[in-house]
Write a protein that binds this DNA or RNA. Structure first.
Lengths: 244, 244
DNA sequence: CCAGCGTAATTGTCAGACATCTAAATGTCT
DNA sequence: AGACATTTAGATGTCTGACAATTACGCTGG
């Protein structure tokens, strides 16, 4: 709306914004080469260093890539799902850690979204997805697994579930909710007993997905959510008591 | 894993990476001030301009903010939901536009996630949320609304629904799915008849939310999804026929 | 025909200077 | 002493000019 004159002092930010808008509007197409830094400096009537700072900003957002050499320059980058996926995970993890989000809130969001893809996963799952889920559940049964490894396997299990829904858009949106929560989950120490319960839920989920039974999968996910919440409550209140 | 020596040629990228890791690890706390650019240049044994490019990269990711003046400098930024929300929206929009994602896929993801927050919204909605939904539905009934304005109001309606779930984590995860899809939705021209149908669905959803009836809300959302898909199919096949 | 070499274009880095901004210290008047 | 104006120091923002590193391309000579 007000693209014409957003003058917040910083030239490099303004220039970055203008180029970003050009990419967003489609005035710059994927893989198109931007003018050289010197040309951009002329066009915007600024020094090359200022242009460079603007380009670095865009590069940090994966909007452009730069290549060196005679035919080099800055090119509009095709955003890939995997790139955005990673960015999503780190951003969510940071967001959660910096805003003291209640475990309950994050957990609720995560399972709400995961239940959202359960019907699709139940319908479309391949044998590969199922095998992956079984494999992770098996690994989680091994008693000599560290808490971190257990959590990593937990994430892998749920990621397999999400992948089974076979919708890349859904998949990358869920990245933050599932993988970004791992640091929070890592704060919970799992007893042998709680691990057993979790593996049982995972088996239940895998069974439901195998049977193409969406309702059972959703039910099992809800049970797992309740159990996770209970577990977190126990750990947190124990920690609080110990501090007092 | 391999943080020790990731030497991909670019000094500014390396430095940005080191500082980013420091923030992620918690070695740099929120609102902590980084050394001045000159000091950082000394520490890393590079020129100030190189340090600046690194800092601009981090600033583009909202990891730091810079303030001018005597007590200024670069400070670790507390990631806010609203910042990440905006980034999420533009990133999703770009991702969708650059990877020729099928409308069907995006639509499916969006409604799957929206249904996920319907139960929470039905339980927790306030009168404010409800009023907002009604207001947007009303606006959508006005025949002199442009297609863009209609779509914007549509987004606002669904955002009110998401907000009613009262879970910020869920809210920002859904940002990409709902608002990021707006460009795709804008490609559909709405006839008076289709607008009427959509408004009817919206009213149905608002009624269900008002009655705290999660199941009806989910059902209405599913109907709206089907209708949207039909509409898109019609528009797309008409466009294809016209081109041929 | 082809292998090697130089050349030009472009990004990456450096060094130093000046401009601008801002809080804090300092000075001045009542 | 307190309120207000002024200076000052430290920091970021910008500019200029130079050189290094890298890469495609064309030329030249065998």
């Amino acid at each position: 709306m007000k693209n014409a004159s957003p003058k917040p002092g910083d030239l490099s930010a303004q220039i970055a914004g203008q180029v970003r808008d050009a990419i967003l509007d489609g005035r710059l197409m994927v893989d198109e080469r931007l003018p050289s830094e010197a040309e951009l400096a002329d066009q915007f009537a600024v020094a090359r260093s200022t242009v460079r700072e603007a380009l670095k900003r865009l590069a940090a957002q994966s909007l452009i890539r730069t290549e060196r050499g005679a035919t080099g320059g800055a090119f509009v980058n095709r955003l890939s799902f995997s790139e955005v996926y990673d960015a999503q995970v780190t951003q969510s993890a940071l967001l959660l850690s910096m805003n003291d989000v209640a475990f309950e809130t994050a957990c609720e969001a995560r399972f709400a979204m995961e239940r959202a893809c359960a019907p699709l996963a139940a319908e479309r799952r391949t044998d590969d997805h199922l095998a992956q889920m079984r494999r992770e559940a098996d690994r989680q049964s091994q008693p000599d697994l560290s808490d971190e490894a257990f959590c990593a396997s937990d994430v892998a299990f749920h990621r397999a579930l999400v992948d089974a829904a076979d919708n890349p858009v859904l998949g990358f949106q869920l990245a933050g909710a599932v993988e970004g929560m791992q640091p929070l989950m890592n704060m919970i120490t799992f007893t042998a007993r709680s691990r057993g319960a979790i593996v049982a839920f995972h088996s239940k989920i895998a069974d439901a997905i195998e049977a193409h039974d969406a309702d059972s999968a959703i039910a099992a996910l809800s049970e797992l959510e309740s159990y996770t919440q209970e577990l977190a409550d126990t750990v947190i209140s124990a920690r609080r008591a110990r501090q007092k």
